[in-house]
Amino acid sequence: MSRFLTTPQGRSIAYNQTEGAGVGVVFLGGFMSDMEGSKALYLEDWARREGRPFLRFDYSGHGESSGAFEEGCIGDWAQDAQAVIEALTHGPQVLIGSSMGGWISLLMTKRLGARVGGLVTIAAAPDFTEDGFWAGFTAEQRAELARTGRVLVPSDYDAPYPITKRLIEDGRNQLVLRTPLTLDLPVLMLQGTADTSVSVQTAMRLFEHASGADIRLLLVKGADHRFSSVRELGQISFSAERVLERLE
């Protein structure tokens, strides 16, 4: 049964939390995903076996949380992540960010300081509203966005993505690849070579842009964007263990 936290902005955020000892782990999901996905549930089981604190949650407009997806934007979802981390966890946390969650985890390093002790990113998608959606829009799509405030974009999943003017405009205030990105903490970036949503080139751009003494990029041959096979899930928990070892 999910519990709910009301953020300073008045949004109701659904979450599930497992108690434990030591440095905690927080999972940040992707765009239009929820906390019932295979990666979140696998990591919860892993953390429970390890006796380690674990937190998963739904951004506003996702899963069980309040709000409509189309009303949200990166800035809102980063506020949601910051609120649950600040209110529900204690001490440094290892953030595991998947796709958009990777971008939000990078924003958390800027906003939460030492509360972020380490990062594991899975197909991190920093700046995707600008470099993915906006850069890929045709002149007709940009005109439709300006005229109606939204445009539907095909996805690799069941339904198209509704991309709003607010999502694009707010995204420009959250970009992390245009200014210095200092990560003075253990970071392990995972990227599948068969990912058609986030390219290896994007992973390399982030890896080369970020500065820090303990940043690693691991390419997983044949892994796609879902990163949810038994082998790939094991790679995520293995990576979390390596980051936790360097912290503890």
Results as ranks from 00 to 15, higher is better:
residue 2 S to Q: 12
residue 3 R to A: 13
residue 11 R to T: 08
residue 14 A to C: 06
residue 19 E to F: 06
residue 20 G to T: 07
residue 25 V to R: 03
residue 25 V to P: 04
residue 28 L to K: 10
residue 30 G to Y: 08
residue 36 E to N: 14
residue 41 L to K: 05
residue 43 L to P: 01
residue 45 D to H: 12
residue 46 W to Q: 15
residue 47 A to N: 01
residue 50 E to I: 00
residue 50 E to W: 02
residue 51 G to S: 02
residue 57 F to N: 11
residue 64 E to Q: 14
residue 71 E to A: 15
residue 72 G to E: 13
residue 74 I to E: 11
residue 77 W to E: 14
residue 90 H to W: 04
residue 90 H to Y: 10
residue 96 I to A: 10
residue 97 G to Y: 02
residue 98 S to M: 04
residue 102 G to Y: 09
residue 104 I to V: 14
residue 109 T to C: 11
residue 111 R to A: 11
residue 112 L to K: 08
residue 129 T to A: 12
residue 129 T to Q: 13
residue 149 G to Q: 06
residue 151 V to T: 07
residue 151 V to K: 05
residue 154 P to D: 14
residue 154 P to N: 11
residue 157 Y to S: 07
residue 160 P to F: 03
residue 161 Y to L: 14
residue 163 I to Y: 01
residue 163 I to L: 13
residue 165 K to N: 11
residue 166 R to C: 00
residue 174 Q to H: 13
residue 175 L to T: 13
residue 193 T to M: 01
residue 198 V to T: 14
residue 200 V to E: 09
residue 203 A to W: 01
residue 203 A to M: 00
residue 209 H to K: 11
residue 215 I to L: 08
residue 224 D to T: 12
residue 229 S to G: 09
residue 231 R to V: 13
residue 233 L to M: 10
residue 235 Q to V: 14
residue 241 E to Q: 13
residue 247 L to G: 06
